[in-house]
Design a binder for these strands. Structure first.
Lengths: 347, 347
DNA sequence: ATGAAAGCGCTAACAG
DNA sequence: CTGTTAGCGCTTTCAT
């Protein structure tokens, strides 16, 4: 039934409450509460009647009052970075997993003008029972303090503290896959444009060095300072091209960095993959863009999201004990069009 | 002060309340409330003392209880699509603008598994005073019903109903800029890969046709069915290349569609912009990726975000009257590397 | 400048 | 199956 009031109400318009529904339906408030939550304890006739009236009145239960009253809030707080495509994939998975576990998700974004501490504070104020932090840059010390208040799961960043649960990709393993792939194609001069102090960067550097050694390519190890953005990749690549023996293969810290690498190569009139092969990391949809067609190391967002929710819910519902849990998700290599055999097979 | 309890509390651990702070500080709860909100009415000594105790106890005010009690909630609900980069830009701007206007932002994402109606319902349950919906696909009829309950601002989709406020880019104007640009370079065969029934698609189609006529290119008008994704652009492009007189310029519905266009051209061994020029729409950071280097029509997310917040807040705080407001933001053309003079200047 | 009392909308615990 | 009572943590109103 459409209400025919003046169609713009003021912000102060009174909300339809549970009591309104009860009165109109001629039952107690308690009964309405049960019906709205889909709990047993109401006769079919009454249930039907209540739902009918609620619909008529446009009643929407007040989530805030509900949470205030309940012992448990069933709220999972998620902090994410708005400008990271990979976080969008994770949040999507978290919504699904939380739903399945019977939890609500409260989102709090980090932007240029809204820092992580602010985002976390909001989540605490909203009475979240546990926090899932995506790629936090907050110092470990502060995260540990936070974990003394409520369960904290960190995703996509390794934290070596037992107070905190972690879900991360096996970064070293991922970059090893990339090295194996290029070495298998016959590449020797394989360079790594790193991620500085970004989450996972240290592990990827180490994984790169180890893999190179395993392939007997110790002498060709070359790590240049990069970063998370395309500019970083482009800058690093120009530096690589200036060296006496430029690499025939480049492993970028992430996909975005890799696009910068591709651009710098392109501008230097080099052909990918004929002259130089390039591998990214993440498999964001940028990589899948057919125009970019980037060979990359794929992180499985859906699995990571589910594991993060499992850990948080596990702390809340079951008793996972005191020790911190670390879930390491194996990455996979997605071979696309930016990798091939090196120009001269024998160096 | 670090608490030295067993470091993982259970989910049922009691929260620190305002009353706890009051007791510990030896003052009334009311006084603590004033101090925490930074309102006048407390002596400097007491204020200092309360803040000190609050910090010691790790007290965080309960946003839900606060909202429940207050007449006004000062909450702005924002629905956005998690997988749309342009929405991320908008949300970022909305956070900033809301902050400046003294409002809190409640985020509700739309994903593959979480539909728009669910996202909106959550926002209502959270007691948001007004809603800002980014690129909603929800039928106009339902949006109008919603607007009978609370102020609704729709961003990036034109709604022709006075009940709803709208902020949108001047889509027709944007595509006209693109046509002007290509025509100015000497192009005649300029085709448009459209967006079907996506928000703004109809306006862009019309803008394209009008602009072509103005340039005396009526005979060259060619609209092919496209879509929002790169696959759509690639498919449409293959269709264009099959025609007897393929275009020398292609206007894609958006940046992502344009990357598909670029890919199809590339695979057909055509050189951009020497053989064909391509223009996108949105100026998402994909476009700015130096590797893609796409000439595109830029929508100003920051301005649109501020206008959306202004409209919502205007409805709440001031009285903007009953009429729906429509803010149309002028787009700008960003010329990059995918456009140039056509292969044969004449014809 | 400070305190006491009431109540926001809801659900938990109990009584019928 | 239904109704009553109390109270979640906070802010408002009124009194001091």
């Amino acid at each position: 039934v459409t209400t025919n009031q003046p169609h713009r109400q003021t912000g102060k318009a009174r909300r339809v409450t549970l009591a309104d529904v009860a009165e109109r339906a001629g039952v107690s408030a308690q009964l309405v509460s049960l019906v709205m939550r889909g709990r047993p304890g109401a006769s079919p006739a009454n249930r039907e009647r209540v739902l009918q009236v609620a619909r008529e009145l446009g009643y929407v239960p007040d989530a805030r009052a509900r949470v205030l009253r309940q012992e448990r809030t069933n709220l999972l707080g998620v902090m994410f970075h708005l400008q990271q495509p990979f976080h969008a994939d994770l949040v999507e998975g978290i919504y699904a997993a939380a739903d399945a576990a019977g939890y609500e998700v409260v989102l709090s974004a980090v932007t240029d003008t809204r820092r992580e501490d602010r985002a976390i504070e909001t989540l605490l104020a909203e009475r979240c029972e546990a926090l899932i932090l995506l790629g936090p840059g907050t110092p470990t010390r502060q995260l540990v303090e936070l974990a003394a208040r409520l369960p904290v799961t960190v995703v996509a960043r390794g934290i070596a503290d037992p107070a905190i649960d972690v879900v991360r990709t096996a970064d070293a393993k991922g970059i090893q896959l990339a090295v194996d792939h290029l070495a298998g194609l016959g590449h020797s001069r394989i360079a790594h444009v790193d991620g500085g102090d970004a989450p996972g960067a240290a592990q990827r550097r180490k994984g790169y060095r180890d893999a190179m050694r395993r392939h007997g390519l110790t002498d060709f190890i070359q790590v240049v300072p990069g970063g998370l953005k395309d500019d970083d990749g482009a800058r690093a690549t120009r530096q690589l091209l200036d060296s006496p023996h430029p690499p025939t293969g480049i492993l970028a810290f992430n996909d975005r960095c890799a696009t910068g690498v591709l651009d710098a190569l392109y501008r230097a009139r080099l052909v990918v993959p004929d002259d130089v092969s390039v591998v990214g990391f993440d498999d964001t949809h940028v990589a899948a863009f057919s125009h970019v067609d980037l060979t990359t190391v794929r992180q499985d967002a859906a699995v990571m999201a589910r594991l993060a929710v499992d850990q948080a819910v596990g702390r809340l519902d079951a008793d996972l004990g005191e020790a911190g849990h670390e879930a390491v998700v194996p990455p996979t290599l997605v071979v696309r069009g930016t990798t091939g055999t090196p120009p001269s097979p024998m160096n």
